[in-house]
Design a binder for these strands. Structure first.
Lengths: 319, 319
DNA sequence: ACTCGTTTTGTGCGCGCACACATAATTTTT
DNA sequence: AAAAATTATGTGTGCGCGCACAAAACGAGT
């Protein structure tokens, strides 16, 4: 009673006009005399009108199409988890007339990304959720979206320059700092720390570089014991990769490894375990089942959880 | 189109009856002939009917009263954060006719808890969100709630025996194990570890005891280096408290302190900082502003975040 | 066969909003 | 000054559901 919700009808009576007129003022679609608009505006300023979202969505009953433009889940467990979140969102929002379609693109194929982005555009969705893992290719795509006034939400990787509707995900820089803090914690011997980007094209993936920057930033402010930080870019599909890894691990001064990608962590962990190198600290990303195995066995010391499932779900919700 | 949502009306046509009959079958309020019920039931089994929650809540437009029975936020920053979450939930759900009332009880006064619980009962709310920090007193209260068929959601502290509608919060036992893991991590000298319960009546607070149990459990499985774990119960309001703390800190073999309550952590941290004891590891709970200060300065090594604000919010949402 | 009770079934209304359309009040044109 | 065009305003309808109530069907008794 006390929390009496004002309806559009109440405003109408208060302003001495009909509901239709109030409606037109609210949706600013003209066809209203100045005098009438005045009156309604006045009432609106006095009391705060909150349209009832339930009633609103009931009537319209529109179908919304949202497209998720993300790397192929089949290729990568991280994106598979994200996909899980999408499926969850799908079922959750289904009866509100929201339909989610997946446009997976090939990781490591910028061309694939560009092509799929074009398809998204021509599909004319009501919203897009995407993870712009390629900086250079992403920006022009977003400009196109904006021109077609298709709202888009970024997740996983942030590109502020793209000014999306919103961004869901963690701050890669801070995330790198956290990793560094955990790496530093309790370390009493100086030595080498390795930052590993296990990706096809890590130079173009800003979020990986941001993580590294955060990692280095931490150590530039926290100097004892002194660490030498080296950075490596490996493609885990490369046949030479095991060799490179072995060479890296043979460094007796190596104290810790920070893997910037979720998938790569378990590979490194298995290598460490084989060599019985328990003293090398390993920090990676995300609770993939593979990773969890090594986390339990103690080979992986910390996993920074990006919660792709939840992120994807939230992303859709925001749209 | 393809995801055509079936309405109650569709079922009616399919079964060859009217919507009213379907409605009666769905809400099982009788007044339906066996033959008709048969037909409707058959259709219902074939297709999965999902009532549109939007339309449902539109019509009813009921007012729901939810009461939050939690410790007085004014007395404790942790519960103040929880209160923030309640306020957020309040504004969020306001227009769906949900009203949240706060029944704060005095911490450290079981009598206060019992009294307030009685008040809640006589207020006849549609739902209760509560944090049963006193085990012995809580159970009979929940039985009363159940008798009056008032749904209740627990948060912060779980009491499975109370079988509530749901529980929001972390597993205290696991949380203690995590703390132990972080305590153990990188420790290379054996010594003493202290578990501090800084509460008025810690013996009756199961979640604190659960945390300790988890903490001890970890070390019983991870033995090197060997630690002696001691446990202390202090009341931070007690005038003797600073003396006790000082005595504890004078132990040269003390390696780390685990504070099981969110509020106490900063007190210990300030003490540590005064004595310049940087080498004692300190682990506590929750991102209270006080705690964050010491986390930044490095005196507190880890804070396990229980996110009371979010928990409270989720609790209401579940109801 | 008719009325009266009882059970079964169908219909109508409203929740609050958006949007379409019908009416009313203007202004412009002839 | 009347008709036509334009603009302003009011009213009606439907979204899907729950619930109240009207209508119909059915039996039983006279």
């Amino acid at each position: 009673m006390n929390t009496k919700n004002i309806r559009i009808k109440d405003i109408a009576t208060l302003a001495g006009v009909s509901t239709g007129t109030v409606d037109r003022v609210l949706h600013k679609r003209g066809r209203v005399s100045k005098a009438a608009e005045e009156k309604v505006r006045k009432i609106l300023n006095e009391i705060e009108y909150k349209p009832n979202p339930i009633a609103r969505s009931l009537g319209s009953n529109k179908k919304y199409r949202i497209i998720a433009l993300i790397p192929d889940p089949a290729q990568n467990p991280y994106w598979e988890q994200a996909n899980q979140g999408l499926i969850q969102a799908q079922t959750e929002w289904a009866r509100y007339g929201i339909q989610i379609e997946l446009f997976p693109f090939d990781m490591g194929g910028k061309e694939s990304f560009k092509k799929k982005a074009q398809e998204v555009l021509s599909a004319q969705p009501d919203g897009v959720l995407t993870a712009p893992i390629y900086y250079d290719e992403a920006l022009p795509v977003f400009n196109l979206f904006k021109n077609h006034s298709i709202p888009y939400v970024l997740f996983n990787t942030n590109i502020p320059a793209a000014h999306p509707l919103s961004f869901i995900g963690q701050d890669s820089f801070q995330s790198g700092k956290v990793a560094a803090g955990l790496m530093h914690f309790g370390q009493h011997l100086s030595g080498t720390l390795a930052v590993l980007h296990l990706d096809e094209d890590s130079h173009n993936s800003i979020h990986l570089l941001e993580k590294e920057r955060g990692f280095r930033d931490y150590f530039s402010n926290n100097g004892h014991p002194a660490f030498e930080i080296t950075e490596f870019n490996f493609n885990p599909e490369d046949p030479d990769f095991p060799g490179h890894l072995q060479h890296l691990l043979s460094d007796s001064k190596l104290r810790g490894i920070f893997v910037s990608t979720s998938r790569g962590t378990s590979v490194v962990a298995s290598s460490l375990e084989k060599r019985g190198k328990k003293d090398i600290r390993l920090i990676g990303y995300d609770m993939l089942t593979e990773n969890l195995k090594y986390l339990r066995s103690g080979t992986i010391d910390f996993l920074i959880n990006q919660n792709p499932k939840r992120q994807a779900f939230l992303g859709i919700s925001h749209l």
